[in-house]
Design a protein around this nucleic acid. Structure first.
Lengths: 231, 231
DNA sequence: CGCCCGCCTTGACGGATATCAAAACGCGGC
DNA sequence: GCCGCGTTTTGATATCCGTCAAGGCGGGCG
């Protein structure tokens, strides 16, 4: 058994529809890799870029301007795909927010395998379409929402996302959760500054909408208020 | 011959890899439809949503808040796909910016056809990935760029996009082009107000970077300056 | 040809958020 | 337990851009 067995096998969302032989073939191509919090997932060779599948942890996809401004353009949770099959390099860089484990593939291998396995391509298409939808609704937030609305929307999304991807299957969104983001990273997601994020968090706490037990912990006290603030 | 023959056959990007018989099958499912400037492309039935392929013209995809703020989250040019195969309704509404012709498919028909034709799904995947890349670089613009940077980036993108999709095959980006957007729509793309857009256009004109022969026409006089302003 | 209406431009002003600065907090190491 | 450093919070001020309000331009129609 290769050390990467569980990488793909675990990923039900991707493997549904593939038979065991196909899954085994995928596994032999993939290499498991651990990335600790704060570390970049380096694309070792510009030409044979990698594709990766998140097994555990949360990673950020960012783009930056030359003068150092940063925008987080995507967040990858377990079972999400990272990278850009069938294309030239996308300019986003990938950094782990928490300790993470991923399964990486050489792009060429992956591309060939995908083209030979329509079922896999179909899954990739569905996921990419879903990601595009999410990204588009985030454009609305970035372009048209105010700081308080951005923060409220962010907290609601977090409470849903972190629940979906959590180990325990719970119904409904989480009431209390641990943010995988620092204040600065929250600012980079929302197109704000760290000071504005901090002030808005404090205001929500003072208004009794949320509680902040520690720097990374959030507890939602008044979800309807948050929904109404989200605009 | 169905009235929709040319819809799909023309679309080389999608049809490459499909044989004539497959293309014919696609054609019998599609229905050609004209949409004049300003008209919405209505999704007639919420459950059997449509997928469409742009033949000619430019359309906008927008999302709005309840209180009427609007954000353009995507722009569809000829050969682009609109709609959401394999999923529930995406909340974006589609409105033609110019007179347009599209080829519409019932979603269920289209989905079934796509699943039976991996080559088509592959093309869709490639296009969706490319669109996701574009959307992500737009997030950077919305979240982190200033108004002058947004305008400069927008003009450069327009000069490239309108050239690619123009009838005549020219090399390099267009120096002069006709915007398919009103000032308000430019504002809705960039997350600005119409007044700010207008002021920035005027400033670029006064600085000798662009010329504005008429309301919709733009001529780029100093591309390097624009590139430098784009950030 | 001239009028009218919608779109665009321009101006004055205010407010939301960025920027700059410093204090407070909290966590890990000694 | 205490110290030190990075992160967060808080405060004061600046600025960009949004808002409100008037014109001005141009295209279409009578």
């Amino acid at each position: 058994m290769s050390s990467c067995d569980t990488c793909v096998v675990r990923n039900r969302a991707i493997c549904a529809g593939l038979d065991n032989q196909e899954i085994a073939a995928l596994n032999t191509m993939g290499r498991r890799r651990a990335v600790s919090a704060g570390e970049p997932l380096i694309w070792e060779d510009d030409d044979s870029l990698l594709v990766a599948n998140v097994i555990e942890g949360v990673l950020k996809l960012t783009t930056s301007t030359e003068d150092g401004r940063e925008q987080i353009v995507g967040v990858a949770y377990p079972s999400d795909f990272i990278g850009r099959p069938f294309g030239q390099t996308s300019k986003a860089s990938v950094v782990a927010l928490t300790d993470a484990r991923v399964c990486v593939f050489a792009r060429n291998d992956f591309d060939r395998f995908a083209r030979e396995h329509p079922e896999l391509e179909h899954k990739l298409l569905e996921r990419t379409l879903a990601e595009l939808d999410r990204t588009r609704s985030w454009m609305m937030l970035l372009g048209r929402k105010t700081a308080p609305e951005k923060i409220a929307t962010f907290l609601l999304e977090m409470s849903e996302r972190l629940n979906e991807t959590g180990c325990a299957v719970k119904l409904g969104p989480a009431r209390r959760f641990s943010l995988p983001f620092s204040r600065q990273q929250v600012a980079d997601v929302l197109g704000l500054t760290i000071e504005t994020v901090s002030r808005q968090f404090t205001k929500l706490k003072n208004d009794g909408v949320i509680e902040l037990p520690s720097r990374r912990e959030v507890e939602i006290l008044d979800r309807p208020a948050l929904v109404s603030l989200a605009g």
